[in-house]
């Protein structure tokens, strides 16, 4: 297990380096320059380029950048006077993380519940109802849902705050807007998997032994149905990350997503790099966790020695 994690961390670093390199060079193809401002004279632009090292050859800039990030220095933003990229990410990531985590957890719990109910009450009114919810959740884009929630729940009904981030009640609407997709995906997956698992002989055996129904469902059914679910956790997390870009803007949540889009539009190179690397790191870690979770859920998948595929 330890050996496995160590080698995975090695791969992660390599992936990280590739992403850093790609982003760095792709960013150079962005038209325009951070200092394209109607009011700056050409002398001032030269001074700025020199100050931020933008007049040096690309390869020099690249190795300098890599050198700096190993020291944990991600540079200083161009659009916000004198503010470091680390502080920009640091201030915003907590908010994005809690919104993401809340949506993922709430979405998973509700989604699993809906999926299980639908499977247990297969081809009944409940099953159809749950699946209608799931299809709606998948097909309504989160920005539409966010707008609807904001207007109806926030303005018309006045039940919850319209926007901003000043306490738990402020996080409810953005969480719902983000979680809808998770609920839908989870419910559909869970229903299919659960139906599949419940048809297995060991479930019949368990029931024949007289084990209580909820133990059968939770211990024998759920745990086996969970394995494929874990595979979609990674992609779900990513879609949550991209979802926050829009939802954060609509609900004026001071998170990282909106900042990312803005940094690209303003050619704020250090922020683009910093946020991209941060997101990729997060994604790489999520994948690692998902891989490790396989072992937890299904002991048949052995991680030690020759790799995780061995058990299959």
């Amino acid at each position: 297990m330890k050996k496995y994690i160590a080698s995975r961390v090695g791969y992660m670093l390599f992936t990280f380096l590739i992403i850093a390199t790609f982003t760095f060079f792709l960013m150079q193809t962005l038209p325009g320059s951070p200092f394209n401002d109607e009011r700056l004279s050409s002398t001032q632009k030269e001074v700025l380029n020199e100050r931020y090292g933008l007049n040096e050859p690309l390869s020099v800039q690249y190795f300098k950048y890599l050198g700096n990030i190993t020291k944990g220095d991600f540079g200083v933003s161009f659009q916000f006077d004198g503010r470091s990229v680390s502080s920009i990410i640091g201030e915003r990531i907590g908010v994005s993380a809690i919104l993401g985590a809340q949506s993922l957890i709430a979405g998973m719990i509700i989604g699993l519940f809906l999926g299980i109910i639908a499977a247990l009450r297969h081809n009944t009114f409940i099953d159809y109802g749950a699946m209608v919810v799931a299809v709606l959740g998948l097909s309504i884009p989160n920005f539409v849902l966010a707008g609807l929630l904001q207007y109806w729940v926030g303005v018309r009904l006045g039940w919850l705050p319209v926007a901003f981030w000043e306490g738990f009640e402020y996080s409810i609407l953005p969480t719902i807007a983000l979680a809808a997709f998770v609920v839908a995906t989870m419910a559909r997956f869970m229903r299919t998997e659960m139906l599949d698992v419940l048809g297995n002989e060991y479930i019949t055996t368990a029931r024949a032994k007289g084990i209580k129904e909820y133990t059968v469902i939770l211990k024998h059914g759920l745990r086996n149905a969970m394995i494929p679910i874990i595979t979609i956790l990674g992609p779900l997390t990513v879609s949550l990350m991209t979802g926050t870009l829009v939802v954060e803007k609509i609900f004026s949540v001071p998170g990282l997503g909106e900042q990312f889009v803005k940094s690209i539009l303003t050619n704020d190179y250090p922020v683009i790099m910093g946020v991209t690397l941060f997101y990729s790191l997060l994604f790489i870690i999520v994948i690692l966790i998902v891989d490790l979770l396989y072992g937890v859920v299904d002991p048949r998948i052995r991680l030690s020695g020759g790799g995780r595929r061995e058990g299959k």
Binding site: I98, A101, W165, E166
Partner: peptide, 10 residues
């Protein structure tokens, strides 16, 4: 999660 809960800024 507990650590992050401070982030509501409440």
């Amino acid at each position: 999660l507990v650590l992050l809960a401070g982030c509501y800024g409440g």
